[in-house]
């Protein structure tokens, strides 16, 4: 089982003919993702098979609008690769066309644009992941995003993270220990994002096949703390946390637009303390993420045996 996406998910690519869109569509098709169409306004009615050096395993029909694509393909998910000035419009178009799961990879979307998107999103049934995120993967079934598929392994740990490569790092540690993942959600590092930690934790908590949750946070904002309060009250599955940025100086943006300690708020120490007080095992060093999850799963086995 999995959350948000699985092998039945029909995926559109907004911005399929751009260089990023082309490169990652090829990789998604190779992974086995059911890509059913692409959107590039003005190129509707054609088929696209990549470009020199990047060949799709099969041609993909191109549409002028998301609405056209949904009518023709019954798509229920969309991934967005369009440049920052057009990203908010692309998300709004996907919402308006009834797409259930929208994943925006684009980095650099202005906050003012995202405020409007967020407001529209709250009035809809759509789920937005991102922007500025690596995407979502249900190992062995469906990869929507830019993560390297081969480091993942199907299994029982739900992973949610604000980071890209740090998530790959954690996933690889799990896979090396033969611990698989139910779904990995990269929620992105921007100040306004569609899916927050708390949303991802809810999905994993309700998914019967997810047995443990790994939450990888970082400095800035209070989203980790909010999720921790929820976990304390409603989540019985073991949750393992890591917060990056213990050594980050205040007032400086650490790469991600949202990773900043401002007015003394959002430090790694505060977050770790808040998580621990809600019963979450917080890993001290990033090298031990995999081992900590393993210990939590082993502990789970012991308690189940005792219960029997």
């Amino acid at each position: 089982m999995s959350v948000l996406i699985n092998k039945k998910t029909k995926v559109l690519v907004q911005g399929i003919t751009g260089s990023e869109g082309t490169f990652h569509t090829a990789a998604m098709i190779d992974y086995g993702t059911n890509i059913v169409g692409g959107i590039t306004p003005g190129k509707g009615g054609t088929e696209y098979s990549g470009k020199p050096g990047v060949n799709f395993a099969r041609p993909i029909p191109v549409f002028n609008s998301v609405r056209d694509a949904v009518q023709a393909t019954k798509a229920d998910a969309s991934v967005i690769f369009v440049p920052p000035p057009f990203a908010a419009d692309a998300i709004l178009e996907a919402i308006d066309s009834g797409i259930k799961v929208i994943i925006c990879i684009t980095e650099g979307v202005p906050v003012k644009d995202m405020i409007n998107v967020y407001s529209k999103l709250k009035d809809s049934d759509s789920v937005l992941v991102g922007p500025n995120c690596p995407g979502v993967i249900t190992p062995g079934e469906c990869k929507i995003g830019i993560m390297p598929g081969f480091i993942h392994k199907a299994g029982k740990v739900g992973v949610v993270s604000r980071s890209g490569t740090l998530t790959y790092e954690a996933v690889k540690q799990l896979t090396d220990l033969k611990i698989g993942q139910s779904t990995c959600i990269g929620i992105g590092g921007d100040p306004i994002i569609g899916t927050q930690f708390i949303d991802a934790v809810k999905y994993f908590n309700e998914d019967p096949k997810t047995e443990a949750i790994l939450m990888i946070g970082e400095i800035g904002g209070t989203a980790e703390e909010t999720a921790a309060e929820y976990i304390k009250e409603f989540v019985t599955k073991p949750v393992i946390g890591f917060i990056a940025g213990k050594t980050a100086p205040p007032g400086r943006r650490m790469g991600h637009a949202g990773a900043i300690i401002s007015g003394g708020k959002g430090t790694a120490a505060d977050k770790a303390k808040a998580l621990e007080s809600c019963g979450i095992r917080v890993v001290e060093t990033p090298a031990m993420i995999g081992t900590a999850v393993k210990e939590a799963l082993d502990g789970l086995k012991k308690t189940t045996k005792k219960a029997k």
């Binding site: 993270s161 604000r162 980071s163 890209g164 490569t165 740090l166 998530t167 790092e169 590092g189 990888i216 970082e218 400095i219 890591f242 990056a244 940025g245 213990k246 050594t247 980050a248 650490m254 790469g255 991600h256 990773a259 790694a268 060093t285 990033p286 090298a287």
Partner: peptide, 13 residues
């Protein structure tokens, strides 16, 4: 990657 960079800084400490 920004997240991995922060985690690496923490690891150095």
């Amino acid at each position: 990657g920004a997240g991995l960079a922060m985690a690496t800084m923490d690891m150095i400490q």
